[in-house]
Design a protein around this nucleic acid. Structure first.
Lengths: 116, 116
DNA sequence: TATTAAAGTTCCTAATTTTGTACTTTATAG
DNA sequence: CTATAAAGTACAAAATTAGGAACTTTAATA
């Protein structure tokens, strides 16, 4: 499945469905999960539709024992190669962006180096 | 890092920080990311603190090209072994829970089979 | 097929988030 | 060190979500 081709809403919904499947695999009810996660049943209900606050979603993942898997998702931030190059000592805390050196206020603002 | 030992709030916050690091690695500003994702800059700001609606978080992931990685996180739901056993034909849409067969309305409600 | 508990819907209120603009602080290029 | 743009804060209004209880629908067991 191509998650990257989905709309934000569709992607959130997909995540909700996967959460639901995980709950069913564990064979626990929405009410039980809600209790374990310390949230209302309504949260579980809407979370499975993809409409939740990240923190509540996190609570549900924890309650289902799925938290560790998040490491595979967004791995602990690594300094990108491009940065390693530029940065001498300290780590970046802001995006760079070219200076208004003198003239040529070209249209494009970014898109210099692709991500990582 | 032991994500499973964190509180829901702390876990959400950790995810926000990782999102931020990913943005910095791509070297784009909050404003740029907001524009690309079609959300307000404030969303980016609070998302990096872990306070966002899942859908907005999804929008940011998409804008950063991190969506595919979600497959590693909550993999496409698989039917659990326990289910494969029980289910003959159709797939489960509700958690089971024992019936009130006759008497013994014991205290415990679930916790029969551990997850998967 | 009948029973019954899980899941989904509804309503109103309370709480929180999101928007948008403006201003302050601060990292970083030069 | 200085200039400047990125990041963070603040505030009021608008929008959305969350809480809680009650009620309806429906999957799954026996």
């Amino acid at each position: 499945m191509q998650l990257s081709h989905l709309s934000p809403a569709a992607l959130a919904e997909e995540l909700g469905q996967r959460l639901k499947q995980a709950r069913l695999n564990a064979n626990i009810t929405q009410a039980e999960l809600a209790k374990r996660a310390g949230v209302s049943r309504k949260i579980v209900l809407s979370a499975e539709k993809g409409q939740v606050q990240l923190e509540n979603f996190a609570a549900l993942l924890l309650a289902l024992g799925l938290a560790e898997q998040l490491n595979n998702f967004i791995p602990k931030p690594q300094i990108s190669p491009i940065q390693l190059q530029k940065l001498q000592g300290k780590k970046r805390e802001r995006a760079s962006g070219r200076r208004a050196s003198s003239s040529q206020p070209s249209g494009k603002t970014d898109e210099g180096e692709p991500s990582w």
